[in-house]
């Protein structure tokens, strides 16, 4: 085999996995909200955009590194998310409306307001955080002198990915090992039964929206050293989160992780082998394919296997 081709393939795979880890974080927030509240949060990407502006200003004005900003922005987004749930979504959930999905439409509106507010306040200029390590990389040959192929690992991509992995692990611990986390899962699985067991479902909804917002907020901080920031960037990430949620299976956290990584790899592969412009096409192909061939998402495959069917 041609070593150059192997190099290109492995490099593409690595780029895909690194991107996928960040995608998973975005998808996790949306799927949690979907599971507990039964609504698709179509302002999810815009929440990330807000978080990215926070990280941007923290960097520009206070010289706080984006990776440190995670510890400020994620808690701030937690409260921002809870406020959206408490003051905007909850009142609409209670109203009987002509449109059964009016809460979902509300989230579209929230997204529009956020991105337009950002345009008014910050203009539509492209912005970035020029961190010193932006173009640093680690090389395989540094670790393994006699390596037959050469691979590079971008420092900010790897650090962002590791952050995403740690945050995902913490989330997993929270959801499976703490009473509050289990109560959130219980609420997603059967709201009435959760109420009967003493779970304050309204509080779980607040917490979940806060948690979803803080996860995507963390993702925003991890993306800002990698991507340009502009007010309209949210829509693209809402779409990505939506594709991951469908691919993973609505409400499934494991599905969202696998779905995020799959999407990252798939996009990276289409970008390398078909051209950069094809990455969004790949995204939609995977979306349609998931709907047609795997309507329950990855979660349905996992479930079938666990049930031994």
């Amino acid at each position: 085999m041609d070593p150059v081709k192997v190099e290109v393939f492995l490099q593409t795979l690595i780029a895909g996995i690194l991107l996928g880890g960040l995608y998973a974080l975005i998808g996790l927030g949306m799927t949690l909200i979907m599971g507990v509240m039964r609504i698709i949060n179509l302002a999810h990407g815009e929440l990330m955009m807000v978080a990215m502006y926070m990280a941007y200003w923290l960097f520009t004005l206070l010289h706080i590194d984006p990776y440190l900003a995670v510890f400020i922005v994620a808690p701030a987004m937690f409260f921002f998310g809870m406020a959206i749930q408490r003051f905007l979504i909850n009142p609409v959930l209670r109203v009987e409306a002509i449109l059964p999905e009016n809460q979902v439409i509300l989230t579209v509106g929230i997204g529009m307001v956020l991105s337009n507010l950002a345009t008014i306040m910050f203009t539509s200029d492209y912005r970035s955080t020029p961190v010193e390590y932006a173009s640093d990389a680690w090389y395989l040959s540094d670790l393994w002198r006699s390596s037959p192929i050469e691979l590079s690992f971008s420092v900010p991509w790897v650090v962002s990915f590791l952050f995403a992995v740690v945050i995902t692990a913490l989330l997993w611990y929270f959801l499976t090992r703490t009473d509050t986390g289990k109560s959130i899962r219980a609420t997603a699985q059967d709201r009435d039964a959760a109420l009967l067991m003493g779970v304050n479902v309204e509080r779980m909804k607040l917490l979940t929206f806060g948690l979803g917002a803080s996860l995507v907020g963390a993702a925003g901080c991890l993306f800002i050293p990698l991507y340009y920031l502009y007010p309209a960037l949210g829509g693209r990430f809402t779409l990505i989160a939506f594709v991951i949620t469908i691919l993973g299976g609505l409400g499934s956290t494991v599905g969202a992780i696998i779905g995020g990584v799959l999407l990252g790899v798939f996009e990276s592969m289409t970008a390398t082998y078909l051209g950069m412009g094809w990455a969004p096409v790949g995204r939609f192909i995977i979306f349609v394919a998931a709907l047609v061939f795997l309507p329950g998402g990855i979660a349905s495959v996992l479930r079938r296997r666990r049930l031994g069917g």
């Binding site: 109560s183 899962r185 699985q189 059967d190 039964a193 009967l196 003493g198 779970v199 479930r303």
Partner: peptide, 19 residues
């Protein structure tokens, strides 16, 4: 029954003793 069908037996029991 209305169990939490994706949780284990033990987790379901724990959900009865949250408070």
């Amino acid at each position: 029954r209305r169990l939490f069908v994706e949780m284990t037996v033990e987790e379901n029991l724990e959900m009865g003793a949250l408070r």
